[in-house]
Design a binder for these strands. Structure first.
Lengths: 228, 228
DNA sequence: GAGTGGTCTAGACCACGGA
DNA sequence: CCGTGGTCTAGACCACTCG
């Protein structure tokens, strides 16, 4: 007898890994497995649903559940607030606002945020430090239209944390890439121009309007890691 | 009346985004919400569990469910087989095996794979092409001990797809970083030495032994993207 | 049309951990 | 201690899609 949906997930995974159920094969239906394992169908369903979310099996009504032939593995990355990320390394987090001014948004930025050309946005450059050493250079466009009346002194509270608390949750997208350090990035991070930097770009939206567009340039050697 | 766990998830998200339930606040218990929405508690549970998985709320027994104050957003990345990734762009996928030989594993590789120093492993370099242009340079260590008797001609079937079909599913980890192109990478990808490359590194394990360690160097401009 | 997974319900017991 | 979420059950209906 097998107890619990996690045990069932593990057992199914074992049969897949042992090639008892090879890639592309159809596995028994929920009813059959429930009978075999001595549990309710809902419990089997929970286990198989988790495996489908992880990309290990594919499920279709009427067609049944099959082991993925060419698995599109799903890796889940944690995207923490920078301060938490630094503190999780056991280092002291701090940040310095290098520049904060209203600027006309360049055409690519305006179009990406769905704003008219020439809209004036906040442009804010922040350097985040770990134990006093440069860690991430943050360059951000921020839409004043979505902000509450007064914005605070970002030297005290980081933009990101203030946004979370005052503008609310939002949808958006995130992209990762590699890019050679610009002169500005090189100067701020203390590396050579052209050095390979890991870049994170996020755009964030509230229900109706664009909130912010941010580019994080990580210091060389930065890795983003997760289990499969 | 609200129907279905997805509708409930959406409604809860709306209340969070509208700051009706601000960051850090405790939201009503499952019993209360089930009553309000006119559904069974299990349905509310399903909705809140999904939001917890996404990092939007934090749930603890006895303490209840609260809106995450500093949200660790979870981004789910699809890690497809390279051929699928290329074909998904509407391009023609092909690959060339540049080098395949048995080599003594260097110490860092052997230790990372948990093998004795001096173990002989396959070293395989493959260039993946999209519409005939370099797309990814794959450099891989492969443990002969875990392979079935004969290995095929990797010029015909890609290593990855063959591994999936013949060695089985496995666990492992994956890491993303940025790195300047080595001379070899630059030559193969047709870029300048030192150009910023997006690097994916995976290690893969079966139940008992290390299978493979692979480094993918993506052509400049490569982006990995997902919704939040 | 019929078989499969997707979801919902009403009830129950349990484990965790804050008060 | 005891309220909350975590899970399980037995049964039901539905939606999708393949044959």
């Amino acid at each position: 007898m097998i107890f619990g949906w996690e045990a069932i997930r593990t057992e199914v995974l074992r049969r897949i890994r042992s090639r008892e159920w090879p890639p592309g094969a159809i596995i028994p239906g929920e009813e059959d497995l429930a009978l075999e394992f001595g549990v309710a169908r809902a419990t089997v369903n929970r286990a198989l649903r988790e495996l489908a979310t992880a990309g290990v099996v594919e499920r279709k009504r009427r067609a049944g559940t099959r082991v993925a032939a060419l698995p599109v593995r799903k890796a889940t990355l944690d995207i923490p607030v920078i301060r938490q990320e630094i503190e999780a390394r056991g280092q002291a987090a701090s940040h310095r606002v290098l520049l904060q001014e209203l600027r006309e948004a360049p055409v690519p930025v305006a179009s990406k945020l769905g704003l008219g050309a020439g809209t004036r946005l906040w442009w804010i450059e922040t350097l985040h430090l770990a134990d006093g050493a440069p860690f991430v250079f943050e360059a951000r466009w921020l839409n004043p239209a979505v902000l509450p009346a007064a914005i605070p002194d970002f030297a005290v509270i980081s933009i990101n944390e203030w946004l979370v608390a005052n503008v609310g949750y939002a949808i958006g997208d995130i992209a990762f890439s590699a890019s050679g350090a610009s002169d500005r990035e090189a100067q701020v991070l203390g590396v050579a121009t052209g050095a390979a930097l890991f870049i994170t770009e996020r755009s964030t939206w509230s229900a109706d309007a664009a909130i912010t567009l941010v580019r994080l340039a990580h210091v060389p050697g930065y890795r983003m890691q997760t289990l499969l």
